[in-house]
Simulated assay, not measured.
Amino acid sequence: MHRPYHPYHPYRLYRSRPFRLAACAAALALSAACTTADGKDAPATDGADSVRAPKADAVFDYQLGGPYAPDDAVQAVSRDRSAEPAKGLYNVCYVNAFQTQPGDAITWWKKKHPDLLLKDDGGSLVVDDDWEEPLLDISTSAKRRELMDVVGPWIDGCAKSGFDAVEPDNLDSYERSDDLLKPEHAAAFAKLLAERAHSRGLAIAQKNTTDLLPERGRIGFDFAVVEECAAYKECGDFADAYDDKVFAVEYTRKDYGNACDAWGSRLSITLRDRDVSPKGAKGYVFAQC
């Protein structure tokens, strides 16, 4: 689907799912951390005992296109890691952890961490062609540890900003890797992300990817953020796996209606426009059941 560029929220879809174009991409040219104003890591906490997972069926708003004041009924939001948390709500911090972004971010990765970009046998970058996003190389334990030196501070920044949880996106990037990456690589990197999040007092969400539901306990996921589970008939899988602690987002009124009819009594079901536009912007849609 062709989408016109919008200077405020240049987001895109994969499999009809929105992902952010990193707001701090320009800052990556200067610093790997891109975390907080003073550049300091968030302090470690006492671990999983301090983690607070969201309540099942909490009213949820998906604000990846830009933060705005939520409706009075909203109890939880997801926002980009460059945004401030919403006061008084359960806040999920969006981090693109398994792919990089086009533009300046690619230049930064090529300059600072060229070996962490996934390449084919000919040395060319392996790219999510739909959105021109190179995949990160999570194929070995050494590269996963090195990647944590970049992504880990982003998670620290979420904690220091006051978020309650982190949502690492593109867990399923191995599906776009020309078989260079495997599900076990994604699970291993996700485990490192979960350990980092828990050490900072953050819960961590599984983002989509039913194939990795059997690994959720070993990885350490606490809840799920799922896009189009009604459209892909996945809501029940996630509901059963996470005891209904699932934020489900649909992008058509038909799928939203089906999700509400089938799962509205158990799950938090949200309707958003495909651009996840800020309130007041053209095309903005929000409903919850």
Score class of each variant (00 low, 15 high):
Lys207Met: 10
Asp121Val: 06
Ala186Met: 12
Asp211Val: 12
Phe98Glu: 04
Gly264Leu: 02
Cys229Ala: 12
Gly217Glu: 14
Asp222Arg: 00
Arg274Gly: 03
Val150Ile: 15
Gly280Gln: 06
His9Trp: 14
Asp243Lys: 15
Trp154Ala: 05
Asn91Lys: 05
Ile269Gln: 04
Ala231Asp: 13
Ala231Thr: 14
Glu175Trp: 01
Leu28Ala: 14
Gly122Glu: 14
Ala42Ile: 13
Ala186Ile: 04
Glu132Ser: 15
Ser139Tyr: 01
Arg12Ile: 00
Gly283Val: 05
Glu227Gln: 09
Thr252Asn: 11
Cys34Tyr: 01
Gly217His: 13
Arg266Ile: 04
Leu202His: 00
Ser139Ala: 09
Ala190Leu: 10
Asp38Gln: 12
Cys158Pro: 10
Asp71Leu: 12
Ile106Ala: 09
Asn91Ser: 03
Val246Pro: 03
Val249Arg: 03
Asn170Gly: 06
Pro70Arg: 08
Tyr232Arg: 12
Glu215Val: 06
Gly220Cys: 07
Asp57Thr: 01
Tyr62Lys: 11
Gly264Val: 00
Val226Trp: 05
Lys119Tyr: 10
Leu125Gln: 02
Tyr256Ser: 03
Pro4Glu: 09
Asp128Thr: 11
Leu135Glu: 06
Gly122His: 11
Gln288Ser: 15
Asn258Trp: 06
Trp263Arg: 10
Ser31Gly: 11
Val246Phe: 09
Leu125Phe: 11
Met148Cys: 03
Trp109Val: 02
Arg81Phe: 15
Gly217Phe: 05
Lys111His: 13
Asp57Met: 09
Glu250Asn: 03
Ile138Leu: 10
Leu135His: 00
Val151Gln: 07
Thr252Phe: 09
Pro4Leu: 07
Ala37Lys: 07
Tyr256Cys: 07
Ser124Pro: 00
Trp109Phe: 15
Cys229Asp: 02
Ala42Thr: 03
Lys282Asn: 14
Asp244Trp: 03
Ala27Thr: 12
Leu135Gly: 07
Arg52Tyr: 09
Pro43Thr: 06
Gln206Ala: 00
Val226Met: 12
Ser141Met: 04
His6Tyr: 12
Leu64Ala: 06
Phe19Lys: 01
Pro278Leu: 09
Thr270Ile: 01
Ala197Arg: 05
Leu271Ala: 09
Arg176Ile: 03
Pro54Cys: 03
Thr36Leu: 15
Gly264Ile: 06
Ile106Tyr: 13
Cys289Gly: 05
Tyr11Pro: 01
Asp128Asn: 15
Ala187Ile: 03
Phe163Thr: 02
Met1Lys: 13
His198Ser: 09
Gly47His: 02
Asp178Ser: 15
Tyr68Lys: 07
Asp120Cys: 04
Leu116Met: 09
Lys119Ile: 08
Leu213Lys: 11
Ile204Trp: 02
Ala23Val: 01
Tyr5Met: 11
Leu136Asp: 00
Asp149Asn: 15
Arg17Leu: 14
Arg200Glu: 05
Glu215Asn: 15
